[in-house]
C-alpha cells in the first residue's frame, strides 16, 4: 500500500500527460523527490498556485526530454525564465485558465 502524499480534491482533475509531455518537470510540483528520505509535499497545490503557473508558465517549461532530470539547470547561465521562454514558444504553450480546464 502506498499513501497518497500529493492529493487534490475530488473536484479537481489533473492530468500528468498534459504537463510532462509539454515540458513541465516533475520537480515543479513534487520538489526534489530524489533527495527525500520520506516523500513530503513541498508545494501548496492550491488553485492560486496552479493558476500562477498557468498564467506565467515560462519558468517551469523545459525541453520535454529533460522533465525527469530533477537537478536540471539551464545552460549558459540563463535563468529558468529565459530558458523556458524559448521552449514555451517552441512548444506553443498557452495554458488554459478557464474553469473547465480543471473542474468538470
Amino acid at each position: 500500500m502506498w499513501v497518497k502524499v500529493h492529493d487534490t480534491p475530488d473536484f479537481v482533475f489533473f492530468n500528468h500527460a498534459a504537463h510532462v509531455t509539454r515540458g513541465v518537470s516533475c520537480v515543479s510540483c513534487h520538489g526534489r523527490v530524489d533527495k527525500m528520505e520520506v516523500v513530503e509535499q513541498v508545494e501548496p497545490l492550491s488553485m492560486a498556485w496552479c493558476i500562477d503557473c498557468h498564467r506565467n508558465p515560462e519558468e517551469h517549461i523545459r525541453d520535454p526530454a529533460l522533465v525527469t532530470e530533477l537537478d536540471f539547470k539551464p545552460p549558459d547561465g540563463q535563468t529558468f525564465e529565459e530558458y523556458g521562454r524559448h521552449w514555451a514558444e517552441k512548444l506553443d504553450i498557452n495554458p488554459n485558465i478557464s474553469c473547465s480546464t480543471c473542474h468538470r
Binding site: M1, W2, V3, K4, D7
Partner: peptide, 9 residues
Amino acid sequence: RYPAQTIAP
C-alpha cells in the same frame, strides 16, 4: 486536510 488515502499500485 483530506484524510490520508492509500493506493494499491
